[in-house]
Design a protein around this nucleic acid. Structure first.
Lengths: 181, 181
DNA sequence: ACTTTATATATCGAATTGATATTATGCATC
DNA sequence: GATGCATAATATCAATTCGATATATAAAGT
Protein backbone atom coordinates (compact mmCIF):
# COMPACT_ATOMS: atom_id res chain seq x y z
CA UNK A 1 0.00 0.00 0.00
CA UNK A 2 1.95 2.95 -1.32
CA UNK A 3 0.95 6.57 -1.88
CA UNK A 4 -0.51 5.62 -5.27
CA UNK A 5 -2.93 3.16 -3.69
CA UNK A 6 -3.97 5.56 -0.93
CA UNK A 7 -4.67 8.26 -3.54
CA UNK A 8 -6.77 5.74 -5.44
CA UNK A 9 -8.67 5.00 -2.25
CA UNK A 10 -9.30 8.68 -1.58
CA UNK A 11 -10.72 9.02 -5.09
CA UNK A 12 -13.43 6.44 -4.30
CA UNK A 13 -15.01 9.30 -2.36
CA UNK A 14 -15.36 11.35 -5.54
CA UNK A 15 -13.18 13.16 -8.13
CA UNK A 16 -10.43 15.40 -6.78
CA UNK A 17 -7.27 17.23 -7.73
CA UNK A 18 -3.77 16.65 -6.35
CA UNK A 19 -4.22 19.78 -4.31
CA UNK A 20 -7.43 18.39 -2.80
CA UNK A 21 -5.75 15.10 -1.90
CA UNK A 22 -2.88 16.97 -0.27
CA UNK A 23 -5.36 18.67 2.05
CA UNK A 24 -6.70 15.27 3.08
CA UNK A 25 -3.14 14.00 3.69
CA UNK A 26 -2.66 17.03 5.93
CA UNK A 27 -5.86 16.60 7.92
CA UNK A 28 -7.63 13.28 8.47
CA UNK A 29 -4.70 11.16 7.25
CA UNK A 30 -1.92 13.23 8.82
CA UNK A 31 -1.50 11.14 11.97
CA UNK A 32 -0.77 7.89 10.13
CA UNK A 33 0.01 8.55 6.45
CA UNK A 34 1.53 11.88 5.48
CA UNK A 35 2.47 12.58 1.87
CA UNK A 36 3.75 15.68 0.10
CA UNK A 37 3.35 17.03 -3.41
CA UNK A 38 6.53 15.26 -4.39
CA UNK A 39 4.72 11.95 -3.86
CA UNK A 40 1.16 12.88 -4.82
CA UNK A 41 1.69 14.40 -8.27
CA UNK A 42 3.91 11.58 -9.56
CA UNK A 43 1.41 9.10 -8.08
CA UNK A 44 -1.50 10.65 -9.97
CA UNK A 45 0.52 10.78 -13.21
CA UNK A 46 1.39 7.13 -12.86
CA UNK A 47 -2.19 6.13 -12.02
CA UNK A 48 -3.36 8.08 -15.06
CA UNK A 49 -0.79 6.38 -17.29
CA UNK A 50 -1.99 2.96 -16.09
CA UNK A 51 -5.62 3.82 -16.76
CA UNK A 52 -6.63 3.48 -13.10
CA UNK A 53 -7.82 7.09 -13.04
CA UNK A 54 -8.95 9.56 -15.68
CA UNK A 55 -7.94 13.20 -15.74
CA UNK A 56 -10.06 16.14 -16.76
CA UNK A 57 -8.35 19.51 -17.05
CA UNK A 58 -10.50 22.35 -15.82
CA UNK A 59 -9.24 25.74 -17.04
CA UNK A 60 -9.13 28.56 -14.49
CA UNK A 61 -8.31 32.22 -14.64
CA UNK A 62 -5.04 33.33 -13.10
CA UNK A 63 -4.32 29.90 -11.57
CA UNK A 64 -2.92 26.79 -13.24
CA UNK A 65 -5.55 24.49 -14.73
CA UNK A 66 -7.19 22.27 -12.16
CA UNK A 67 -6.54 18.64 -13.03
CA UNK A 68 -9.44 16.67 -11.63
CA UNK A 69 -8.91 12.92 -11.35
CA UNK A 70 -11.67 10.32 -11.29
CA UNK A 71 -11.23 6.64 -10.50
CA UNK A 72 -12.07 4.20 -13.31
CA UNK A 73 -13.63 0.72 -13.05
CA UNK A 74 -10.17 -0.72 -13.61
CA UNK A 75 -8.94 1.48 -10.77
CA UNK A 76 -11.67 0.19 -8.44
CA UNK A 77 -10.73 -3.39 -9.24
CA UNK A 78 -7.06 -2.66 -8.64
CA UNK A 79 -7.86 -1.05 -5.28
CA UNK A 80 -9.92 -4.03 -4.12
CA UNK A 81 -7.04 -6.36 -4.99
CA UNK A 82 -4.62 -4.12 -3.05
CA UNK A 83 -6.94 -4.16 -0.02
CA UNK A 84 -6.70 -7.97 0.04
CA UNK A 85 -3.20 -7.82 1.50
CA UNK A 86 -3.76 -9.66 4.81
CA UNK A 87 -0.81 -8.09 6.65
CA UNK A 88 -0.51 -4.40 5.93
CA UNK A 89 2.32 -2.99 8.02
CA UNK A 90 2.36 -0.25 10.65
CA UNK A 91 5.66 1.58 10.90
CA UNK A 92 6.93 4.32 13.15
CA UNK A 93 9.91 6.52 12.33
CA UNK A 94 10.52 8.58 15.43
CA UNK A 95 13.40 10.99 15.55
CA UNK A 96 11.98 12.02 18.91
CA UNK A 97 12.48 8.57 20.45
CA UNK A 98 15.84 8.21 18.72
CA UNK A 99 16.91 11.47 20.35
CA UNK A 100 15.68 10.30 23.76
CA UNK A 101 17.81 7.14 23.42
CA UNK A 102 20.84 9.40 23.64
CA UNK A 103 19.46 11.68 26.36
CA UNK A 104 22.48 10.86 28.55
CA UNK A 105 24.62 12.78 26.03
CA UNK A 106 22.39 15.87 26.16
CA UNK A 107 22.06 18.86 28.46
CA UNK A 108 19.03 18.55 30.77
CA UNK A 109 17.54 21.83 29.52
CA UNK A 110 17.71 20.59 25.93
CA UNK A 111 15.93 17.38 26.92
CA UNK A 112 13.17 19.46 28.51
CA UNK A 113 12.80 21.54 25.35
CA UNK A 114 12.50 18.49 23.13
CA UNK A 115 9.87 16.98 25.42
CA UNK A 116 7.86 20.19 25.63
CA UNK A 117 7.85 20.55 21.86
CA UNK A 118 6.68 16.97 21.47
CA UNK A 119 3.85 17.55 23.93
CA UNK A 120 2.78 20.61 21.95
CA UNK A 121 2.75 18.57 18.79
CA UNK A 122 0.56 15.97 20.44
CA UNK A 123 -1.76 18.68 21.72
CA UNK A 124 -2.13 19.98 18.16
CA UNK A 125 -3.23 16.52 17.02
CA UNK A 126 -5.69 16.27 19.89
CA UNK A 127 -7.19 19.62 18.94
CA UNK A 128 -7.59 18.30 15.39
CA UNK A 129 -9.30 15.13 16.62
CA UNK A 130 -11.66 17.21 18.73
CA UNK A 131 -12.55 19.33 15.72
CA UNK A 132 -13.29 16.28 13.58
CA UNK A 133 -15.52 14.86 16.28
CA UNK A 134 -17.60 18.00 16.61
CA UNK A 135 -18.06 18.58 12.90
CA UNK A 136 -18.05 16.32 9.94
CA UNK A 137 -17.60 12.88 11.44
CA UNK A 138 -21.25 11.83 11.28
CA UNK A 139 -21.19 11.02 7.56
CA UNK A 140 -17.80 9.29 7.54
CA UNK A 141 -17.57 5.57 6.94
CA UNK A 142 -17.07 3.42 10.06
CA UNK A 143 -13.49 2.66 9.05
CA UNK A 144 -12.60 6.32 9.14
CA UNK A 145 -14.11 6.68 12.62
CA UNK A 146 -12.15 3.64 13.77
CA UNK A 147 -8.94 5.17 12.46
CA UNK A 148 -9.60 8.56 14.04
CA UNK A 149 -10.40 6.91 17.38
CA UNK A 150 -7.17 4.96 17.07
CA UNK A 151 -5.16 8.12 16.61
CA UNK A 152 -6.89 9.79 19.49
CA UNK A 153 -6.22 6.84 21.80
CA UNK A 154 -2.53 6.75 20.87
CA UNK A 155 -2.15 10.51 21.32
CA UNK A 156 -3.66 10.28 24.79
CA UNK A 157 -1.32 7.47 25.78
CA UNK A 158 1.74 9.30 24.48
CA UNK A 159 0.80 12.41 26.43
CA UNK A 160 0.21 10.53 29.66
CA UNK A 161 3.34 8.42 29.31
CA UNK A 162 5.57 11.40 28.62
CA UNK A 163 4.16 13.39 31.54
CA UNK A 164 4.49 10.47 33.94
CA UNK A 165 8.00 9.47 32.88
CA UNK A 166 9.81 12.61 31.85
CA UNK A 167 11.45 12.75 35.27
CA UNK A 168 13.45 9.64 34.31
CA UNK A 169 15.32 11.70 31.73
CA UNK A 170 15.83 15.05 33.32
CA UNK A 171 16.31 14.14 36.92
CA UNK A 172 17.82 16.87 38.98
CA UNK A 173 20.51 15.13 41.08
CA UNK A 174 18.64 16.03 44.28
CA UNK A 175 15.55 14.09 43.21
CA UNK A 176 17.72 11.12 42.34
CA UNK A 177 19.30 11.07 45.76
CA UNK A 178 15.97 11.49 47.48
CA UNK A 179 14.45 8.51 45.64
CA UNK A 180 17.57 6.42 46.09
CA UNK A 181 17.11 6.05 49.83
CA UNK B 1 18.06 12.73 12.45
CA UNK B 2 18.62 10.27 9.63
CA UNK B 3 19.95 6.71 9.63
CA UNK B 4 23.52 8.06 9.58
CA UNK B 5 23.03 9.95 12.81
CA UNK B 6 21.32 7.04 14.56
CA UNK B 7 24.20 4.74 13.55
CA UNK B 8 26.60 7.32 14.96
CA UNK B 9 24.63 7.32 18.20
CA UNK B 10 24.69 3.54 18.43
CA UNK B 11 28.46 3.63 18.05
CA UNK B 12 28.79 5.75 21.21
CA UNK B 13 28.11 2.46 23.00
CA UNK B 14 31.27 0.92 21.52
CA UNK B 15 32.71 -0.18 18.17
CA UNK B 16 30.44 -2.31 15.98
CA UNK B 17 29.97 -3.64 12.45
CA UNK B 18 27.08 -2.93 10.11
CA UNK B 19 25.78 -6.36 10.92
CA UNK B 20 25.83 -5.59 14.64
CA UNK B 21 23.94 -2.33 14.11
CA UNK B 22 21.34 -4.12 12.00
CA UNK B 23 20.64 -6.43 14.94
CA UNK B 24 20.02 -3.41 17.12
CA UNK B 25 17.71 -1.90 14.50
CA UNK B 26 15.80 -5.21 14.58
CA UNK B 27 15.53 -5.44 18.36
CA UNK B 28 15.55 -2.47 20.71
CA UNK B 29 15.04 0.12 17.94
CA UNK B 30 12.57 -1.90 15.85
CA UNK B 31 9.41 -0.31 17.26
CA UNK B 32 10.35 3.25 16.33
CA UNK B 33 13.28 3.30 13.89
CA UNK B 34 13.75 0.36 11.55
CA UNK B 35 16.55 0.38 8.98
CA UNK B 36 17.80 -2.23 6.54
CA UNK B 37 21.21 -3.03 5.09
CA UNK B 38 20.41 -0.83 2.15
CA UNK B 39 20.47 2.15 4.51
CA UNK B 40 23.05 1.03 7.07
CA UNK B 41 26.00 0.17 4.82
CA UNK B 42 25.82 3.36 2.76
CA UNK B 43 25.44 5.31 6.03
CA UNK B 44 28.60 3.78 7.48
CA UNK B 45 30.53 4.40 4.24
CA UNK B 46 29.44 8.00 4.24
CA UNK B 47 30.29 8.48 7.93
CA UNK B 48 33.70 6.95 7.27
CA UNK B 49 34.28 9.25 4.30
CA UNK B 50 33.44 12.29 6.47
CA UNK B 51 35.82 11.16 9.22
CA UNK B 52 33.05 10.79 11.79
CA UNK B 53 33.91 7.11 12.26
CA UNK B 54 36.99 5.00 11.65
CA UNK B 55 36.91 1.56 10.13
CA UNK B 56 39.11 -1.39 11.05
CA UNK B 57 38.89 -4.48 8.87
CA UNK B 58 39.09 -7.70 10.84
CA UNK B 59 39.86 -10.71 8.63
CA UNK B 60 37.82 -13.86 9.23
CA UNK B 61 37.87 -17.39 7.87
CA UNK B 62 35.05 -18.40 5.56
CA UNK B 63 33.11 -15.19 6.14
CA UNK B 64 33.69 -11.75 4.65
CA UNK B 65 36.01 -9.47 6.63
CA UNK B 66 34.30 -7.86 9.58
CA UNK B 67 34.41 -4.09 9.22
CA UNK B 68 34.37 -2.68 12.72
CA UNK B 69 33.51 1.02 13.00
CA UNK B 70 34.49 3.27 15.89
CA UNK B 71 33.23 6.79 16.48
CA UNK B 72 35.85 9.57 16.36
CA UNK B 73 36.01 12.76 18.44
CA UNK B 74 34.75 14.63 15.40
CA UNK B 75 31.88 12.15 15.20
CA UNK B 76 30.99 12.73 18.86
CA UNK B 77 30.90 16.47 18.30
CA UNK B 78 28.73 16.04 15.22
CA UNK B 79 26.30 13.82 17.15
CA UNK B 80 25.96 16.34 19.99
CA UNK B 81 25.15 19.06 17.45
CA UNK B 82 22.53 16.80 15.83
CA UNK B 83 20.96 16.11 19.23
CA UNK B 84 20.41 19.84 19.70
CA UNK B 85 17.49 19.83 17.26
CA UNK B 86 14.68 21.02 19.55
CA UNK B 87 11.83 19.47 17.51
CA UNK B 88 12.70 15.99 16.30
CA UNK B 89 9.66 14.58 14.50
CA UNK B 90 7.62 11.45 15.19
CA UNK B 91 6.04 9.96 12.09
CA UNK B 92 3.74 7.02 11.53
CA UNK B 93 3.28 5.31 8.19
CA UNK B 94 0.51 2.81 8.68
CA UNK B 95 -0.70 0.72 5.80
CA UNK B 96 -2.88 -0.99 8.39
CA UNK B 97 -4.83 2.18 9.23
CA UNK B 98 -4.92 3.16 5.55
CA UNK B 99 -6.52 -0.22 4.81
CA UNK B 100 -9.05 0.24 7.61
CA UNK B 101 -10.08 3.60 6.11
CA UNK B 102 -11.45 1.65 3.18
CA UNK B 103 -12.95 -1.18 5.23
CA UNK B 104 -16.37 -0.45 3.71
CA UNK B 105 -14.97 -1.70 0.38
CA UNK B 106 -13.71 -4.97 1.87
CA UNK B 107 -15.26 -8.32 2.67
CA UNK B 108 -15.90 -8.72 6.43
CA UNK B 109 -13.77 -11.87 6.64
CA UNK B 110 -10.82 -10.02 5.08
CA UNK B 111 -11.19 -7.23 7.62
CA UNK B 112 -11.08 -9.81 10.41
CA UNK B 113 -7.93 -11.37 8.97
CA UNK B 114 -6.16 -8.01 8.75
CA UNK B 115 -7.09 -7.19 12.34
CA UNK B 116 -6.00 -10.58 13.67
CA UNK B 117 -2.65 -10.29 11.92
CA UNK B 118 -2.13 -6.83 13.34
CA UNK B 119 -2.91 -8.10 16.86
CA UNK B 120 -0.35 -10.88 16.40
CA UNK B 121 2.22 -8.34 15.35
CA UNK B 122 1.53 -6.28 18.45
CA UNK B 123 1.76 -9.40 20.61
CA UNK B 124 5.19 -10.09 19.13
CA UNK B 125 6.35 -6.63 20.17
CA UNK B 126 4.96 -7.13 23.64
CA UNK B 127 6.83 -10.40 23.97
CA UNK B 128 9.99 -8.54 22.96
CA UNK B 129 9.40 -5.81 25.54
CA UNK B 130 8.85 -8.45 28.23
CA UNK B 131 12.13 -10.11 27.29
CA UNK B 132 14.03 -6.84 27.48
CA UNK B 133 12.57 -6.11 30.89
CA UNK B 134 13.55 -9.48 32.34
CA UNK B 135 17.09 -9.47 30.98
CA UNK B 136 19.45 -6.77 30.04
CA UNK B 137 17.57 -3.60 30.88
CA UNK B 138 19.32 -2.91 34.19
CA UNK B 139 22.47 -1.51 32.60
CA UNK B 140 20.74 0.54 29.89
CA UNK B 141 20.78 4.31 30.05
CA UNK B 142 17.61 5.94 31.38
CA UNK B 143 16.74 7.23 27.90
CA UNK B 144 16.60 3.71 26.55
CA UNK B 145 14.30 2.64 29.38
CA UNK B 146 12.06 5.62 28.68
CA UNK B 147 11.87 4.67 25.01
CA UNK B 148 11.13 1.02 25.73
CA UNK B 149 8.41 1.98 28.21
CA UNK B 150 6.98 4.30 25.57
CA UNK B 151 6.76 1.47 23.05
CA UNK B 152 5.21 -0.84 25.60
CA UNK B 153 2.56 1.73 26.53
CA UNK B 154 1.66 2.36 22.89
CA UNK B 155 1.46 -1.35 22.12
CA UNK B 156 -0.90 -1.87 25.05
CA UNK B 157 -3.16 0.96 23.91
CA UNK B 158 -3.24 -0.32 20.34
CA UNK B 159 -4.20 -3.78 21.52
CA UNK B 160 -6.97 -2.54 23.79
CA UNK B 161 -8.32 -0.10 21.24
CA UNK B 162 -8.47 -2.68 18.48
CA UNK B 163 -10.15 -5.27 20.70
CA UNK B 164 -12.72 -2.78 21.96
CA UNK B 165 -13.54 -1.26 18.57
CA UNK B 166 -13.15 -4.00 15.99
CA UNK B 167 -16.90 -4.55 16.07
CA UNK B 168 -17.33 -1.14 14.39
CA UNK B 169 -15.70 -2.53 11.26
CA UNK B 170 -16.94 -6.06 10.95
CA UNK B 171 -20.46 -5.86 12.24
CA UNK B 172 -22.51 -8.81 11.18
CA UNK B 173 -25.83 -7.37 9.88
CA UNK B 174 -27.74 -9.15 12.66
CA UNK B 175 -25.81 -7.32 15.37
CA UNK B 176 -26.41 -4.05 13.57
CA UNK B 177 -30.15 -4.61 13.46
CA UNK B 178 -30.28 -5.74 17.09
CA UNK B 179 -28.45 -2.60 18.23
CA UNK B 180 -30.47 -0.40 15.94
CA UNK B 181 -33.74 -0.91 17.78
C1' DA C 1 20.66 -35.58 3.34
C1' DC C 2 18.28 -31.38 3.41
C1' DT C 3 16.84 -27.05 5.01
C1' DT C 4 16.91 -23.33 7.75
C1' DT C 5 19.42 -19.94 10.59
C1' DA C 6 23.36 -17.16 11.45
C1' DT C 7 27.46 -14.57 10.01
C1' DA C 8 28.85 -10.79 7.02
C1' DT C 9 29.07 -7.69 3.20
C1' DA C 10 27.22 -5.17 -0.90
C1' DT C 11 24.26 -3.18 -4.57
C1' DC C 12 20.34 -1.51 -7.31
C1' DG C 13 15.90 0.12 -8.89
C1' DA C 14 11.95 2.09 -7.05
C1' DA C 15 9.64 4.92 -3.77
C1' DT C 16 9.57 8.80 -0.77
C1' DT C 17 11.04 13.15 1.37
C1' DG C 18 11.69 17.89 1.70
C1' DA C 19 12.73 21.85 -0.50
C1' DT C 20 12.14 24.87 -4.11
C1' DA C 21 9.95 27.21 -8.29
C1' DT C 22 6.14 29.45 -10.70
C1' DT C 23 2.08 32.36 -11.09
C1' DA C 24 -1.94 34.82 -9.51
C1' DT C 25 -5.53 36.35 -6.33
C1' DG C 26 -7.11 38.27 -2.02
C1' DC C 27 -6.61 39.98 2.52
C1' DA C 28 -4.39 42.28 6.27
C1' DT C 29 -1.12 45.50 8.07
C1' DC C 30 1.73 49.48 8.16
C1' DG D 1 -0.50 52.26 -1.77
C1' DA D 2 2.93 49.06 -0.79
C1' DT D 3 4.55 45.16 1.41
C1' DG D 4 3.99 40.76 2.92
C1' DC D 5 1.49 36.63 3.95
C1' DA D 6 -2.12 32.94 3.04
C1' DT D 7 -4.42 30.35 -0.41
C1' DA D 8 -4.89 28.11 -4.80
C1' DA D 9 -2.61 25.08 -8.02
C1' DT D 10 0.90 22.72 -10.47
C1' DA D 11 5.61 20.72 -11.02
C1' DT D 12 10.43 19.09 -10.38
C1' DC D 13 14.82 17.51 -8.33
C1' DA D 14 18.53 15.84 -5.42
C1' DA D 15 19.02 13.19 -1.47
C1' DT D 16 17.43 9.62 1.26
C1' DT D 17 15.37 5.32 2.27
C1' DC D 18 13.16 0.81 1.20
C1' DG D 19 12.93 -3.84 -0.14
C1' DA D 20 14.75 -7.26 -2.57
C1' DT D 21 18.47 -9.71 -4.21
C1' DA D 22 23.31 -11.61 -4.53
C1' DT D 23 27.35 -13.90 -2.56
C1' DA D 24 29.70 -17.20 0.47
C1' DT D 25 30.28 -20.36 4.41
C1' DA D 26 29.37 -22.69 8.80
C1' DA D 27 26.51 -24.49 12.18
C1' DA D 28 22.53 -26.52 13.73
C1' DG D 29 18.26 -28.56 13.45
C1' DT D 30 14.77 -32.20 11.02
Amino acid sequence: MDVKTVCLGMLTDGPASGYDLKKQFESSFAHFFAAGYGSIYPALSSLSASGLVECEEVPQEGKPDRKVYEITDEGRQFLLKALENPSPCHKVRSEFLATMCFAHLMRPEDIQTVINNRLEDIARYQEMFRQFESEEMCDWPEGMKFVLGFGKAIAGTMQTYINENRHLLADEPSAKVATGQ
